[in-house]
Computed example of a mutant assay.
Amino acid sequence: MLIPMGDYAAGVEVANDLVATSPDVRGAEALSGPGDLVAVLSGYDFAAYDVAPYGSTAGGGAAPSAEDVEKVRFLRGEVRAVMESGTEDEAVERAAMLAGHVGLAPVLRRDPSGRWQWYVPTARDASLVAELAAVVGVSLLGLVRALGHGRFRACAAPGCGGVFADASRAGRRRYCVPALCGNRTNVANHRARRREVAR
């Protein structure tokens, strides 16, 4: 696998999706088995494993195992630790450790449009969790370099223990899972307003 170093936003979303599987966000474990792991990663291309995007012919590798799920749960905690780091230096150190799981020396290759692009290659026999760690680590390093440590945030939804990395241009993201936490907050605010009007 070649991890592009210039486009960190996609890898940041992998990190956000992974951290959002935590019971701190969902209220229960969202990675209970290999099928859950495939569902979380199905929008991303991990071609050596059977988790390629739906409809893609890139997959066809080994299906994730229960052991992979356990390792990814552990990785989820490491990714969360990057997002919760107190300083930029700590975030860089932790993300670099993730990137080093299977990262080899960076290479310069042409992208599909013909432009030169830096990539971090991974070993051919790398495990799913090692490739996932490398993708997330490289992407979080890119986020810190481009946008700064302030893009690691806690979810603004009351009662949610989630964290996330905001790779958006505007930098205004407030919720770890906008469709879940944002919706909960909006519904709660709406109900509170209705109660006030009814008084």
Rank of each mutant, 00 (worst) to 15 (best):
P34I: 10
A48Q: 08
L147I: 01
A157W: 07
G148D: 03
G103H: 09
R169A: 14
Q117F: 10
A198V: 00
G55K: 11
A154D: 06
V107N: 04
S22W: 04
V72H: 13
G11M: 11
A63W: 14
V197K: 13
V38S: 14
N16T: 02
D125I: 00
R76M: 06
A15Y: 07
M1P: 12
R173N: 09
F152D: 07
G33D: 15
R80Q: 12
L98H: 09
A154Y: 04
A9N: 02
G33A: 11
L132D: 07
T57E: 14
V14W: 08
E131H: 03
A52V: 09
A58Y: 11
R145C: 01
G27Y: 12
E78T: 06
K71E: 15
A105Y: 08
V136I: 15
E90V: 02
V72Y: 12
G35C: 01
T185A: 15
E78I: 00
R94C: 02
G162W: 08
G100I: 02
A188F: 01
D24E: 15
A154W: 02
R169L: 10
Y175L: 04
Y8W: 15
A134I: 00
R26P: 03
R124E: 15
V25I: 11
G86C: 04
A157I: 05
M97Y: 08
L37N: 09
G137R: 12
D36M: 05
V25D: 13
C181E: 05
G148R: 04
G33I: 02
A10N: 08
S113Q: 13
L2K: 09
F152I: 07
V38W: 04
A52C: 11
A165F: 13
E93A: 15
S65G: 06
A58V: 04
A192L: 09
V82C: 02
S32E: 14
A134F: 00
A95D: 10
L37H: 09
H190D: 08
T21L: 08
E131V: 04
S113I: 01
F152R: 07
R73E: 01
A10F: 10
T185C: 10
C160N: 06
E13L: 13
W118G: 06
G27T: 05
T122N: 10
I3H: 13
